[in-house]
């Protein structure tokens, strides 16, 4: 199982691999274009889900099943649902007015950045392996992949071990960041303490009577 991934650079991929790649690439591209072009935020969010599914299929095709499942659970199942939730709640589900530019000169800047990114990608594709961008993908990556990772649950075990040993600091920092974000959201979302609800009215009623 594992060696098929590792030898991808040197051998020609089989027909099913090509078919899966073509189908999921088409799904990803259609979704990505949809995110950018659709005027309605809900349609854009749906296109994003489509792209995420396409990427998940590509992960499975590369035998990164765990990553694919996490991608669907976290991104499609939670984050985009929250996007939609906010869009529905705030009632911004109308077509955006794109005539007024809030930020002057952002369009030329966007075109310039697009050009630079595209040139970078093309340069990388010309000088290295075209799928991953790595200069070579033959052989284990930094010796992390051992024999045990060829069993299906070995992948998860490896990931967990790396996460709680080598990358423990990054993991803890992410956790702290998330907590800070939640606290920040609560602080930002709180109402100014203006007496406007029934409790303050009740207090006033007590005073007057």
């Amino acid at each position: 199982m594992l060696h098929t991934t590792l030898l991808l650079a040197s051998t020609r991929p089989a027909l099913p691999d090509i078919l899966v790649f073509a189908a999921s690439a088409a799904v990803i591209l259609v979704g990505a274009v949809g995110v950018v072009t659709s005027r309605n935020p809900v349609h854009a969010a749906l296109s994003l889900v489509m792209t995420l599914f396409g990427v998940a299929v590509l992960f499975i095709e590369q035998e990164a099943d765990f990553l694919a499942a996490v991608q669907i659970i976290v991104y499609a199942g939670a984050i985009v649902v929250l996007f939609l939730f906010v869009i529905m709640f705030l009632g911004v589900d109308r077509s955006e007015d794109v005539e007024v530019e809030p930020l002057g000169g952002q369009r030329p800047l966007a075109y310039i950045l697009l050009g630079i990114t595209l040139a970078g990608i093309l340069a990388m594709a010309a000088t290295s392996h075209w799928v991953t961008g790595a200069h070579q993908v033959v052989g284990p990556i930094q010796g992390h992949i051992t024999a045990s990772s060829s069993s299906p649950s070995g992948e998860v075990a490896q990931l967990g071990k790396q996460l709680f040993t080598t990358y423990l600091f990054a993991f803890e920092a992410t956790a702290a960041l998330l907590v800070i974000a939640v606290v920040g959201a609560v602080v930002l979302a709180r109402r100014p303490p203006v007496p406007q609800d029934s409790e303050s009215e009740r207090a006033e009623g007590k005073l007057s009577s």
Binding site: V42, F66, A69, G77, V81, F85
Partner: peptide
Amino acid sequence: PPMGILFVLAMSGIAVYGVMLAGW
């Protein structure tokens, strides 16, 4: 699949889209 039970969780998370989009 090797991540069988995660697939169940993923699909039950996806199922909310139908209800959500139907209402909206």
